[in-house]
Amino acid sequence: MPATRMETRRGWIGNRRLEVIEAVQRALLTGLQIPDHDRCISLVEYEADAMITPPSKGPSYSVIEIKLFSGRSLDAKRKLYAALAEELSAFGVPASDIKIVLVEIDPVNWGLGGLPASEIDLGFKIDV
């Protein structure tokens, strides 16, 4: 049940927003082994003067923040990082222009349908 937010500068994505979001979804499937129907991704594009980035980064510099249940292994996280870099390379984004921040949340601190996620059968494993 990750909640993912990708922030970048406007211009390089053009009319490929949905394609980029689907690429991020594929990376989540690969790295976290979530079911395909588990989707919660937003894409935010900023005007050039509303986002400063390191001077060595290109126009496609992106920050991807993923809020997820705690419990994933380092191997799963490595797969996720590599999958995001691979998927976004198809859009000309170099791996060095991708910053990924994972925010791990205990399932008791995540509510779904009026219940804590810790009390719900999610239908997938988080300890991958």
Rank of each mutant, 00 (worst) to 15 (best):
E47D: 10
M51R: 14
I52Y: 09
M51C: 14
G11V: 06
I64E: 01
V101M: 07
L102S: 00
D121T: 14
P2Y: 00
E7H: 02
P59E: 13
G71A: 11
L122A: 11
I64N: 01
L122Y: 03
G111A: 05
I13R: 00
S70N: 13
A95I: 13
L29V: 12
S70C: 12
E104F: 07
G14M: 04
I120F: 01
M51N: 04
V128S: 14
P2Q: 05
W12L: 00
H37M: 15
S70A: 10
P35E: 04
L28R: 02
R78F: 03
T53Y: 12
Y46L: 14
E19Y: 03
Y81C: 14
K67V: 12
T4H: 02
F124L: 11
G113K: 04
E22W: 03
A85F: 00
L32V: 03
R17C: 13
S73M: 03
L68M: 10
D38Y: 08
K125W: 03
G111N: 04
Q25F: 03
K57M: 15
F69D: 05
D36S: 08
R17M: 15
R17T: 13
T4S: 15
I98H: 02
N15M: 05
M51H: 11
G71R: 03
D97H: 00
G92P: 06
R39M: 10
L74V: 14
V93T: 08
L80T: 03
T53Q: 13
P107T: 04
E87F: 00
K79P: 08
G111L: 04
P94V: 11
E22L: 07
L102E: 04
I52E: 12
E47G: 15
S62T: 04
D36I: 15
G111Q: 02
T8G: 15
R9D: 04
F91L: 02
K77P: 08
I126L: 13
A50W: 12
K99S: 15
E104N: 04
L115D: 09
Q25T: 07
L122P: 03
G123W: 05
F69Q: 08
K125E: 12
L115S: 14
F124G: 02
A48M: 09
A82G: 05
V103E: 06
P35K: 06
K79F: 06
V20Y: 00
A90I: 04
L28W: 02
I34S: 01
